[in-house]
Design a protein around this nucleic acid. Structure first.
Lengths: 339, 339
DNA sequence: CTGTTAGCGCCTTCAC
DNA sequence: GTGAAGGCGCTAACAG
């Protein structure tokens, strides 16, 4: 194949230039709305662009401008509603600014998850937003250090060099939950957590334990950890309730897990909230139609997604804060009937 | 800035070549596991790659190979669980094969949605999988025609030149629903549909109407259309039930809408399924915990996502079927308590 | 206002 | 087995 032009390939800037009778540069200028182009020339070029159905190749452009107008988004499980909503939210914000999102899940067994992130970088993304999950702060830190692109971490409030962290105020949320339980006269709180990955201590767990200890005096509240899905939440809650019959309140790592707790209570003949009060996290819409409707800590996932996008943009513009930065978002307690 | 190498930039193949004391070509050969490289050389290059933390730039590679190992995925609403699951499923399949997914939502008012798809192409994706939603067959057809990349349409069974269609057998699903209602002695079926975009007739709606007409003799079953969320489903169902008190069965465009119907029935003091039976589509996990649990048509979204990815791959390998191709997937009726 | 030159980082082809 | 050109599609820097 001496030349391309197989007839199927998309037209290039050269084709446009040829048809318009100008140089590639002029076409490039028209594309970027450069002011110093004669109106007549501009019109001819635009004409040629239209007749050819030409669209610039963003990879070729990115190669020289060092910017692909693309961000990476990573989380362990896109089917999790909180991650999914955040992803969707970022995508909307991104596209409003001409950006696209490369989305990927993170695997626990993939060079410790950073392999996927590194590959994201080779794709030419201008920055990465991620939910850290099983990655600990030092892994995020070293990723951010080797990455020449801004990194935003969502959902964990840690100050890490060169990364912007956007997270809900977990301490406040935990207090709201424990206080709410207290209002209902509950002191024996069981905690349903997300899997505890090796090395990682969850902010949420720490906050919850601290709030329970300081407000109820109970030293180490019973915990059960599992993958945060309904079925696992049900199992975990069953285990906890059988082992600790004194439990009169259950808090789930997220709403899905709390829904499992609702089922476990039903299985065991316990009334919610009379025998056991249940509260979840996230504020997913389905929480409104459980039986009874789920009380929950609402996270503004769209707002945070938006902030994540903006943070990425501003890092690109003004550089990443070398000492890191933490954006804390207020939680909101949505009281329905379960707790 | 005369040269790059700002110290922050990622190393290139040249840096590796310099350190290993070979030419760029040799590095390239090592990267692509080309056989004819001396073991010693290969070792030196690999060493250099490791010490530099070098990763090849996939955009630069794509520019010459004409393949970015990237696919586009598009749907109107990523927060819809069916779309979200399919997206997640494709992403997993993709990454197993070294592919990444560029994810985007489609806007109704964006050159009719094709604008976003065109941009996806300029990003250099090797193919596009999409849920057509408000795009009609002719729009998909012309997009596939101008695209030099394979196109897979998920969720609509239309035979369109150069596109592979992957969809559940809507006729069969509709029959299963109507038959199930018949078993329960229900003949007055109300339909809760997704918004009816101009020009578009939903396969699902057509299938449902056909099944109702042929199996119950009812000429044109009452329909109400809205955005498929719980609240809208509730409104639509309320409208329908008030206007047609004879209705004893309701089918929702998806589970979310059917959940709204459940709420509408409760609002109106109707028992489910005794007064009104309710069936949805999709088989989302939350359907298991509604009151009563939701009977539903389960779609194998992961299986279809996988098939979509494989179809894209095979089109790349063997070319797209010029006369189009339709892959039909069997529905499954999951009987719980609502219908 | 417009064209020329020189790459962005990589792979393909052809030499050696 | 390895290296030297050349080019993928585009823009930046300089001419003029």
């Amino acid at each position: 194949m001496p030349r391309r032009r197989t007839g199927i390939d998309r037209p290039t800037i050269i084709d446009v230039a040829d048809i318009a009778g100008v140089s590639r540069q002029t076409v490039s200028r028209v594309l970027s709305d450069h002011p110093r182009v004669a109106d007549a020339t501009r019109a001819r070029v635009k004409e040629a662009i239209k007749t050819l159905g030409y669209r610039p190749n963003r990879m070729a452009r990115a190669l020289v401008t060092q910017s692909s107008l693309t961000f990476g988004f990573a989380a362990v499980d896109m089917r999790d509603l909180h991650f999914g909503d955040t992803c969707a939210g970022m995508q909307v914000a991104a596209r409003e600014h001409g950006y696209y999102l490369v989305v990927t899940e993170l695997d626990f067994d993939d060079e410790g998850g950073v392999g996927t992130l590194e590959t994201l970088l080779t794709l030419g993304v201008d920055g990465v937003a991620l939910f850290p999950s099983f990655l600990d702060d030092s892994e995020i830190e070293s990723f951010a250090a080797t990455s020449d692109r801004p990194v935003v971490m969502i959902g964990r409030q840690s100050r890490i060099p060169n990364v912007v962290s956007i997270a809900m105020d977990e301490d406040r949320a935990a207090e709201m939950i424990v206080d709410r339980f207290a209002e209902m006269g509950r002191r024996n709180i069981g905690i349903l957590m997300n899997e505890m990955y090796p090395r990682i201590v969850h902010n949420r767990f720490v906050a919850l334990r601290k709030a329970v200890e300081s407000r109820t005096g109970v030293a180490s509240p019973p915990v059960e950890a599992d993958y945060p899905k309904i079925a696992n939440g049900r199992d975990a809650a069953t285990t906890l309730l059988k082992r600790h019959p004194e439990i009169d309140a259950l808090v789930g790592f997220n709403d899905t897990m709390a829904m499992g707790a609702l089922l476990a209570c039903r299985d065991l003949g316990l009334r919610v909230p009379d025998d056991v009060a249940v509260i979840g996290y996230d504020g997913i819409p389905f929480g409104a139609i459980t039986d009874p409707p789920l009380t929950t800590i609402v996270q503004d996932s769209i707002g945070m997604a938006d902030a994540a996008f903006k943070a990425l943009l501003s890092c690109l513009k003004d550089g990443t804060p070398e000492d890191g930065r933490v954006q804390v978002w207020p939680p909101e307690l949505l009281i329905r009937e379960s707790g």
